[in-house]
Design a protein around this nucleic acid. Structure first.
Lengths: 145, 145
DNA sequence: CGATTATTGAGATGGATTCTCATTTGTTCG
DNA sequence: CGAACAAATGAGAATCCATCTCAATAATCG
């Protein structure tokens, strides 16, 4: 498992502990869209004593270090993803359906924003909101009643 | 205050009630980035009996109708914005600072996505994550200790 | 205006997150 | 290697936010 992330933690002055290793391992392995509860469960599979509070604390830490990031999609609570690259969604505001798409024009903007605002950008999120094909028909049906 | 939103509610078969009017009014007026609690407080300034549950119910309704949309930025919980046009943020994953910027390339993608997925798109959110200028210095300081 | 039905408000409930604090464990340094 | 120190942990309590329940109310339609 990635030693560079471990080095990043250590260099920032944090201790390398079993729960932190477990959470890192899970983010590396499973990666996408696990919520804190699921992360806890997976972590306990690796290090059974892992407590809930520690998972929350670790996720906060990894977020601050720019290693992971919470994402809110649909109605459910936060899920965590690796904080690198882009995530692109089409979200139906009526039924909550989510479609992922790939091509994205945001990368082209990163350089310019970094220069303009002095940021070091590591990831982005692009979401479009509207009505999916299905919910469009529902809405017009409601209107014509 | 906007009669078109009221018509939209009525046409969709919903009743026009004081709490709904109050929330609509607030979204129109204040518009940006109020959380449910703040919306409740403002609504009670207009219609004192307004209950918390009703605010949540109304926000859910307005979300489904594509009038408002929750947004999660930084660490705090959801805030609500008008669901139209674009919102563009630069978010520091370490300190949570948020910078708004204007120019956006996403508009150019809407048409194509609408055709490809059959969506009717009404708004978008583009967020870049990374380290702000200040937190970059903090991190390198930590590294050099 | 009266009937019908959606909507409301108050409080109970539920679930997720954070806090507290005594204990444990990494890390550093002799 | 083996203290010593500070950081990190885990268990449960406490808090906070959101949802649910249900009897009472009020908007709409004829």
């Amino acid at each position: 498992m990635s030693t560079s992330l471990i080095r990043q933690l250590r260099d920032a002055g944090y201790k390398i502990t079993p729960p932190r290793l477990a959470v890192l391992e899970i983010i590396q392995r499973e990666g996408e869209h696990l919520n804190p509860n699921e992360i806890l469960a997976h972590a306990q599979a690796i290090h059974p004593q892992t407590g809930r509070a520690t998972v929350y604390r670790t996720l906060e830490l990894l977020t601050q270090l720019g290693i992971v990031r919470p994402i809110y999609v649909g109605d459910s609570g936060p899920t965590y993803i690796r904080a690198q690259g882009g995530h692109h969604h089409l979200v139906c505001s009526r039924c909550g359906a989510v479609i992922d798409f790939d091509q994205c024009v945001a990368d082209g903007m990163e350089r310019e924003l970094e220069e303009r605002f002095g940021f070091r950008i590591t990831s982005h999120l692009l979401e479009f909101y509207g009505l999916c094909a299905h919910c469009q028909t529902l809405t017009s049906a409601a209107l014509s009643e």
